[in-house]
Design a protein around this nucleic acid. Structure first.
Lengths: 159, 159
DNA sequence: TGTTGACTTAGAGTTAACTCTAGATTATAT
DNA sequence: ATATAATCTAGAGTTAACTCTAAGTCAACA
């Protein structure tokens, strides 16, 4: 079986423009052309495409994805380099996910901050007496609740 | 205590250029100026700044962060809107982290693919006999190993 | 057999988020 | 007192990743 650029675009939920852009940037050297010069994707090409989509999602720049595809086209001499590339980006992705977990924790504490303000009808319950400045103890109070076993993803939930 | 733009930039590990850009985009309406027109950040401003940094990390566009800051400056009438904003972006971040987890799983399976190819000295051990196409059963084999209790983050590790 | 609609290329346009330059002012350190 | 460093604004420049336009080719259907 072979597929047109439009069919592939539909399957991957990305535009034909984007696929042509990737091709221009050297990400799709494996794609065949028919007699009229039109791209014909093979079943095996989806193995490459899912790697491209994965690396995109991982935040790898298009240019570097091109480097990886180059390695793939070169053959067995680059197996180690390809492994190292993936190993590197696995570590980067793990680091990013750890950062995002902290971001999520912060978002949940802020939701709790607003939930309690909402219940009081005013944000000023979190201020230091007689000021417009947030009492640093408020965050500590939230952390205390979490330390005592409360679920952070539930603490800030309304109702 | 008050802080110059350079001191704040150092603390947050972002450039003064970027802070001025954020100010231009309306993210820092709370920052005071001294007699010479220079920005003076207060201790309480760091509460706003850490929200800005958090939303940035969560992938919220600068313009939308500006909308949130506007709500903050308006007062208690916007408490619900601010809660809803954070709730929305919490959900989006959770969805993103789930996608990244799938991406990480894929990266690990590909590492295993190259680890085993490396041990064999050639990628062709994963091809269908007599072709240059990857055997779909290879991925199933990896999933089988994981289902049998192997750790995905260890399976693709060298040594 | 014509007429849609999908495809081709080259190249221009867009957007977000910086990042920097120029020219002026102000603060700090000998 | 003076040189160096930090700050200011307005506005220009950069980069990545698309996104689209124009002008033409090709395929499928009534």
């Amino acid at each position: 079986m072979s597929y047109s650029i439009g069919e592939v675009a539909d399957k991957l939920a990305i535009s034909p423009y984007t696929l042509r852009y990737y091709d221009k940037e050297g990400l799709l050297p494996f794609v065949d052309r028919n007699a009229a010069g039109r791209r014909r994707f093979k079943d095996n090409d989806f193995n490459f495409l899912e790697v491209i989509v994965c690396l995109k999602e991982a935040g790898v720049p298009v240019k570097q994805i091109g480097d990886f595809i180059d390695l793939c086209m070169t053959g067995d001499a680059t197996l180690q380099a390809r492994y190292d590339f993936l190993d590197d980006h696995e570590a980067k992705l793990e680091a990013k996910m750890a950062r995002l977990q902290h971001t999520l924790d912060f978002l949940r504490w802020k939701k709790w901050y607003y939930k309690t303000a909402l219940q009081a009808g005013t944000e000023s319950i979190h201020y230091l007496p007689g000021t417009n400045q947030v009492d640093p103890a408020v965050h500590a109070e939230f952390n205390q609740l979490v330390a005592n076993g409360a679920s952070p993803e539930k603490l800030g939930t309304l109702n």
